[in-house]
Design a protein around this nucleic acid. Sequence first.
DNA 1: CCGCTGGCCTGCGAGC
DNA 2: TGCTCGCAGGCCAGCG
Length: 280
Amino acid sequence: MPEGPEVECTRQYLQSLIGKTVKKIQLTELSQKYPKYQNRQSDFDWFKGQRVTDIERIGKFLVWHFNGKIILNHLGMSGKWILLKKGNQKLPSHSKALMYFEKYPQYAVFDDIRNFGQFKVFESYEKVMQHDPIRKMGIDGLAKPFPMKEFLAKINKPNYANREIGAVLVDQKLVAGVGNIYKSESLALAKINPTRLVKTLTKKERKELGLAISKTLWKAVDCNGSTFSTFQIPTGQEGSAQNWHKVYGKHGEICQNCKTEIIRIVQNGRSTFFCAECQK
DNA sequence: CCGCTGGCCTGCGAGC
DNA sequence: TGCTCGCAGGCCAGCG
């Protein structure tokens, strides 16, 4: 699932849990094998009887607030939350954490097939804000209205000048929430070739790119995110954003605008898809 | 400080 | 059909 829009959709999906009182937070045995889940079960004793006061999204992180302590939660490449009815539902095979609540018929399950996710206790919000990836995080691509001034200031920094825009756009220190799909899609919408060096982008193009990022991310949220795998989850939060993708994953297919072939290149070890005719 | 490469994992599907 | 290989929405340590 998870780029910024998918994390935002997950946050919205979990809204019903705000105000609920925790009965128990249970780590699974599997979770203990991975450093980003390394908190011992006893670290979660504190949460019993605590209310979920908020569930916030910061970039691609979910931040679970509990009147003091925080759980910092990253979905990695494959993390998903699902709400299951208490009782007879079968857990997904790579579940890492379960949350049970008082007087609530559902419990929340964090499942993460590839184990790149994160679920960690922080002693305070301040500590979370000091955590490097968050401290250094750039503007929120889903901020409304899009913070154009800050975007232009950040992309203007000298360290970006000689790099390819397709490689730069996934940098969370620039725009948080953009990932590999929406990188390609934003560039397609802005009609900018991903191999362009940042320094060659005109101010007009930079502005168009900023707007394209905002439009692309919000359209994805409105579509409930992009869903790729055939992996089905019981409650089904299937997204449909993939239905309007112009370029992502479409190498070898024909551009709907100009009928030339969409190509795939590799930037920083990640795939980038684009139409060399439409994106100059 | 910087950017790039490879590594972390499991699962899937294209191609042989 | 069955196997291998490449690739997958993220990030970060280590290296030059």
